[in-house]
Design a protein around this nucleic acid. Structure first.
Lengths: 200, 200, 200, 200
DNA sequence: GATGAATGAGAGTTCATTCAT
DNA sequence: AATGAATGAACTCTCATTCAT
C-alpha cells in the first residue's frame, strides 16, 4: 500500500468521524501514522486530496457491480439494492456511505465534484437499464421503459441509503427494502413468473 | 417579520450560496441588513441558529402537504412527488432543497438534528401511508402494504430530489418523474382504473 | 492616534528590527499592544498593510521638504542632503531609512510599490530641479541643466543614505557629505559667490 | 563547472526571479538541474549558500575594474560609471544588480554580509581615489580631496544603479549619466582640458 | 437593540532541513 | 553524489464569539 493510499484511507476515516464541514488536515493527520505536513507533499491541496478520495470511492462501488447477463434479472436488481441499501450495520460500508453523502452534498459548490458524480450516476443508470433490457429479452420482465425504470430504481435505492445514513436507527430500512422488492422489482415480472418470488 | 425571522431567512440564503461547510457567521451577516454581532444577540450560537433554521424549513414543507381524503389518491401521490421532485428550476424551491440536503448530510454528526429529521420523516411516511389506505378503501388501489409503499415512495422522491440538487442539469429529472408516475403510482391502481391515466 | 496608525507604527518598528524577509505578522503583533488578529481586521492583508506603510513613510519625507524660493539655494540643497544623508545616528530617522531600503529592494517584485516609488522619486527630482532653477534665476548658480543635476544629486544623496544603512559604522558618511557639499553644491556657484562657503 | 558553481548560479537566477524575501530552497532547486536536497549536501545552510553567492558576485564586479594608470583618468571614471550604472537593459547585468540590491538590503540584519560589503566598498573607493590621484599627478585633474570625491562618486553611481533596479523604465537613467559626466567628472578637469569633452 | 472593535484558537499551507537509501 | 520521503516549526489568515458603548 503506497503512502498516497494510506492518506486516502486516513481521509475516509477522518471524514466519517468528523464530517465534511469539520474535516481538517490535522484530523486526517491523526488517522495517518506519519506527519500531517507529509500529506501536502503527496497532494497539492485539501481539495486535490478530496477529489482523489471521491474518485477512489466511486470506482470502488463500480467495481462491485456484477456483469452476468445469464443470471436472473430480478435477482440481479435485488443484489444491487442490497449492495446500496442493505449495508446498514456493516461497519466498513456505512463508513463509505456516510462519507459519500458528505461529498455529494458538496457537489452544488464544486464543479469538478459534480462532474465526477454525474459520470458515476450515468454508469449506474446504464447498468440498471441493461439489466432491465436483459430481462425483457429473456421474456422475464414486462416491456417497461428501461431508462425510466433505471432513474426510478436508482433514486429509490439511493434515497433509502441516504435515509439509513441520515436517520441511523430510526431509518425505515426494512420497509424500504421490502417496498423495493415487492413493489418495484416484482412488478416487473410477467404474470407467469409471479408464482415464484422475485427474491427467494 | 421579526428580527429573528430575518436572521433565519438570511441564513437560508447564505447556506444556499456558500454551502454548510463554508457557512460563516460573516456570510450570514452579509445577507442580513444589520450587523453580524446582532445575530449573537438573538441566538446563543451558530448551532442554535441552524437548529432553528432546520425546524423552520421542515415545518414549511409539512405545511405544503394537502389533507383531502376525498381527492383522487393517485393524483394526491403525484402532486406530492411533484412538490418534492419537480421543483428543479424553480428558484426559491431549489434553494431550500439545496440547503436541506446540506443539513441532512450533517445529521450523522448532530443528534438533535437527527431527531428533528427522524420526526419529520415519520410525518411524511404517515401521510403517504394514509393516502394509500384511503385509496385502498375507495377501491382504487390494490391491497399493498401501506408502510412499505410509503418507505419506498419517500425514498424514491427524496432520492430524485437529491439527484436534482447534486447533479443539477445532468440530473435525470424527467425519467425519474416518469418512472414514479408510471411504475410506482400507476401500478397501484386496480385493473379497471388503468384505462385512464394516473396523472391527468 | 487611531488603531490603524498604531498598527502602521508597529509595522515600521518590526520591519526595522527583523527586516522585510523576516517580517511576520506575529512580529508586528508583538510591537502592537493588541492582538495580532486585530491587524487583519483593520487591513485586508499583509500586502495591504505594507502598501499603507510605504505611503505613510514616503508622504512623511515629502512633508519635510521646504518650499522657500527666497532662501539661499545652496543652503536649501545642503539642508536637503542633510535631511536624507545626515540622519545616521539619529535613531528614529535611521529606522525609517532602513525600513525604506527594505521596501525599495522589493520594488522589482511588486508593481504597485514600484509605481509609488516612481511617483515619489519624480516629486523629489522636481523639487531639486526647482531649487536649481531658482538659483540660476537669482544669478547665484551657473547655468547647468536642472534635470541632469537633479538626477545626479538625488542619486548621490540616496546612494550615500543607502551606504549608511547598509554599512553602518563603516559607511564613509563624512567623506560623502563633504563631497556633496564641496564638489556638487559649491561647483554650482558662480565665481563671485565662491568667496563665501556654500554652507554657512 | 563544479556542482557548487552550478548551485551558486541557480541561486542568482532564483534570487533575481523571486526576490530575497521569497527565495526558497525549492525555487533554487528548480533552477538547478539536480535535486533540491543535493544543495544541502554542498552547503551547510541557506545562509551559507547566500554568503558564497554574495562573495562570488562582489568578486566578479571587482574583476571588471581596470587598472591602467596610463589611461586618461576622466575616461577611466566614465567607464567605471558606465560599468555600474549603464547596465540598464543589459539583461545579464540587470539580473546581478537586482540580486545585489536584495542582498545589500539584508546587510543590516547580517553582520557577515555587512562586513563583506564594507570590504568591497573600501576596495571600490580606493580604486576611485587612486584614479583621482593619478589624474592630479598627471595634471589633468584639479586638486580635489580624492577620498571625498571617491565617496561622492561611489554614492552617485550606486544611487543611480539602485534607481535603475528599483524604478525600472521610470528611472532617470540618461539624466543621471549625463549629470555624472558633465557635473562630476568634467568639473574635475583643469581649465585647459575642458576644451575637449570628458567623454569622447 | 445594535454596533465596531477585539480576541484566541485553529485553519491550510510552506519551508529549511534531515533521513534512508 | 544524489534522491524522494519525511518532519516540525512557523506562516498568513479566518472565524465564532465577546466586549464596550
Amino acid at each position: 500500500m503506497t503512502t498516497g493510499d494510506e492518506i486516502v484511507d486516513a481521509t475516509f476515516t477522518a471524514l466519517y468521524e468528523h464530517g465534511y464541514a469539520d474535516l481538517t488536515m490535522a484530523a486526517i493527520g491523526e488517522e495517518f501514522d506519519k506527519s500531517t505536513s507529509l500529506i501536502h507533499y503527496h497532494f497539492d491541496s485539501k481539495e486535490d486530496l478530496l477529489a482523489t478520495c471521491l474518485e477512489t470511492i466511486l470506482d470502488g462501488f463500480l467495481d462491485d457491480l456484477e456483469h452476468d447477463p445469464e443470471a436472473d434479472p430480478a435477482d440481479r436488481l435485488l443484489r444491487l439494492a442490497e449492495l446500496v441499501v442493505g449495508g446498514a450495520g456493516d461497519d466498513g460500508v456505512d463508513e463509505f456511505h456516510t462519507a459519500l453523502l458528505e461529498l455529494r452534498a458538496q457537489a452544488p459548490y464544486d464543479e469538478a465534484l459534480r462532474e465526477q458524480l454525474a459520470r458515476n450516476d450515468a454508469v449506474w443508470r446504464d447498468h440498471i437499464a441493461e439489466i432491465v433490457r436483459d430481462g425483457i429479452e429473456q421474456g422475464r420482465f414486462r416491456e417497461v421503459d428501461p431508462e425510466n425504470f433505471a432513474a426510478l430504481f436508482r433514486s429509490a435505492i439511493e434515497g433509502a441509503q441516504s435515509h439509513n445514513v441520515i436517520l441511523g436507527e430510526d431509518a425505515p430500512c426494512e420497509e424500504a427494502m421490502a417496498g423495493i422488492e415487492e413493489l418495484l422489482i416484482r412488478e416487473l415480472l410477467v404474470e407467469d413468473d409471479r408464482t415464484g418470488d422475485a427474491a427467494s
